[in-house]
Nucleic acid binder design. Sequence first.
DNA 1: GATGAATGAGTTTTCATTCAT
DNA 2: CATGAATGAAAACTCATTCAT
Lengths: 189, 189, 189, 189
Amino acid sequence: MRVRDDTKINTIFEATTALTSEVGLNRLTMSSIAQRAKMACGTLYIYFDSKERLLNELYMHLFVGSTLSILPSIGHLPLKKQLSIIWSKVLWFRVTNSSEVIFMHQFRYSVYASEETHKLDDQFVGFIKNLLGQGKEELIIKNIDSDLIIPLFYGYANNLARQMAMDEVEITDEIIDQTFHLCWDAIKS
Amino acid sequence: MRVRDDTKINTIFEATTALTSEVGLNRLTMSSIAQRAKMACGTLYIYFDSKERLLNELYMHLFVGSTLSILPSIGHLPLKKQLSIIWSKVLWFRVTNSSEVIFMHQFRYSVYASEETHKLDDQFVGFIKNLLGQGKEELIIKNIDSDLIIPLFYGYANNLARQMAMDEVEITDEIIDQTFHLCWDAIKS
Amino acid sequence: MRVRDDTKINTIFEATTALTSEVGLNRLTMSSIAQRAKMACGTLYIYFDSKERLLNELYMHLFVGSTLSILPSIGHLPLKKQLSIIWSKVLWFRVTNSSEVIFMHQFRYSVYASEETHKLDDQFVGFIKNLLGQGKEELIIKNIDSDLIIPLFYGYANNLARQMAMDEVEITDEIIDQTFHLCWDAIKS
Amino acid sequence: MRVRDDTKINTIFEATTALTSEVGLNRLTMSSIAQRAKMACGTLYIYFDSKERLLNELYMHLFVGSTLSILPSIGHLPLKKQLSIIWSKVLWFRVTNSSEVIFMHQFRYSVYASEETHKLDDQFVGFIKNLLGQGKEELIIKNIDSDLIIPLFYGYANNLARQMAMDEVEITDEIIDQTFHLCWDAIKS
DNA sequence: GATGAATGAGTTTTCATTCAT
DNA sequence: CATGAATGAAAACTCATTCAT
């Protein structure tokens, strides 16, 4: 019997991200994914119930891999260090995986994004909110509603990465440093 | 084609923004636009060559109305004041026109966005870049590559507005003040 | 403007019945209907929401045309005469519209048949039940549960018509007479 | 192919009849049969060349089991008795095996039914025709073309059984008696 | 024999665009 | 100009059948 091959899921994911970054989410079709992944159209449906599920699972996979996975391991570090690590991690991922970022960006606000997916984001946002709350108590960070601060990090990271990907600028530690300092100066009290 | 009947064009634009914010760009169809605008499907093609043109013209219309239009009139003011006015203007527009912002956001990186449209953005970015260059010469602003600064403003504004629209938070002068100060603290030298 | 052409619905109905009798309900596709009706595939969806609706509306159309339409006009006649007219009407229709009957037969118990459609049948059955009830009161008809009698008429008519259509036997008044007498002898008291 | 493993074949047959009565012939898929029969999709093809063959063999199996098998053993009985036994046998089978009857009914006139299958029916019909011929010679039965009589039995039995199955009415000897008398009164001279 | 993953032709349905009125 | 019926290519998804294990 042909064994169910879990690397196939990765092949599908790769084909999907690559195609989305090339032609956009709107022109992404199941048959084009299949063609790119070198398998039959029907095979996609063995691994995913529908196009919607495929995209949602890909998003969750990327989101977990890019950000959620580091959160637990840095809880003991000082606040600024934690933020700086997250910033670096997020930026590195975003810049070195430009196709993936383009996919995430287009998917994020598309009709395909499910409740479940949005909750992942909330989880991340919740963590950051917590961090900022701490910082405010310690009087390190300006006493401003976190909902006004988070979009700065979030929007800046997204936009910066997208811009760099489009201009084909390579990321350096210096750039990460500089941009993090902008953020830090913005929020430090 | 394209006779000036601004009433009709506005009706089409309003229908398009409203629908996009309700069902998303992916599910936006020409006949749904026509239906919402209370006209026939074919009438849309009297005013716009194609769906792509319609969307691009709408984007340009919104972009000019929301930002580009203020730029010339404030050139004589001091740097920080100029930035603050632009910030306020942009944010007000984004928050008080949430449908429009959702449309712009979804359209901005979609397959529909043409070269021409991207150049509009560049025009705006060029203006800001200029401003920042001035600031750096006057040693008011950190000496950092403007391409690293602009995404902060751009991304922050976009994200903040989208978040506020979704949470149905009302904008106040205080919020504009607070958020602008975050930005300013980030870049001031 | 092209005017919405209601004869088109008949064209579609005819194509559908003809095709069903030729290839069966299972191989009946929307594109084959469109092709046979000499119109585009999408045109079908202007007149019918879905394949299911098309089939249901066709069934109702045929059912009403073939049986339901005569019921009201014969209420004043004596019982046996009424039954005999219905029998004749049903049989004539079934035999002279063999494609239609094949469609109705295949559709009747298919997955496509909706609640609404079944209710039509009930309406007809209800009428006959009433008639039989009268007959029993007048002691003309055997005092047997109507649910045991109706399938005789219903099943016999269906089967006889189908058989005659397949054997390409022509119907005659004599045949109608003979077969009705079988039925009548079966139920008369 | 087609090794005799009757246990497995029966499992497949049961799964097929059950599923057909639940979802209809149109939604009956090979993989759903396999799933219900708790075996792999490919296994079905060890026992049957194709879906069409499977269905035809099932029909023949049911037909033989339900009717054909009794014919030889009653040839010596008087005409009315023979008919009455067949009626009883047929009705009992149809009512106590409602899934099977639904399958037979849906299959009977579907695209899947092969020549071979139709010949089975002819065999049964031929036997009955013979019987009726006898009856006419003995002047017990009306002198009417048998092709006009058989559909009465055939259609009545089918329809009655289907109706009772749907209404979940239990069959009794009384019902069999009553309905047979209807038939007999119809044809007796 | 048995499995079930893989195939890909075929199905229903959508929708940007055209065009007769 | 305005209409909206008509078009047909293309999309998502299904499923009988094959085949590597």
